[in-house]
Amino acid sequence: MRYITYLVIGTFFGIIMFKSEAASWFRIYEMFQFGSFHMYGIIGSALVLGVIGIQVIKRKNIKPLNGSEMSLQPKNKSVARYLIGGIIFGLGWALAGVCPGPIYVLIGAGFPSILIVLIGALFGTFLYGMIKDRLPH
């Protein structure tokens, strides 16, 4: 039953990504060319509501439905890993024109070439796991 919940959440997310065109290479390219407010509006409006909502959760001490703790742990402090990792991610995001969520959405939408991106992303994740101890964090 719990798994159905996650399946429904994922389906909802997939439809939003596709219908808002956030899963389109064209929109990513246009964003990095500052050609439209669209992508900034999506991220910005999600963020404004997100910041307000999380403040409400914290101040009212709202708990998840199962009574556990909210997954809002602070992230570890560092600059190198976030900046270098972020830049590497950004290079890939702009090169393939997709970030991880849309990879799955586009597979569902029937673009077989995205499977190559997925294979790359899995390999990239594996590669990170192999050499992470040698990277600055």
Partner: peptide
């Protein structure tokens, strides 16, 4: 393009500890 783009996305997301949605 697709393969290298994917590798950078996968590697970078784990190195940075998250992607567009997570960060």
């Amino acid at each position: 393009i697709l393969l290298i783009g994917g590798i950078l996305v996968g590697f970078g997301a784990r190195y940075a500890g998250g992607c567009t949605s997570g960060h």
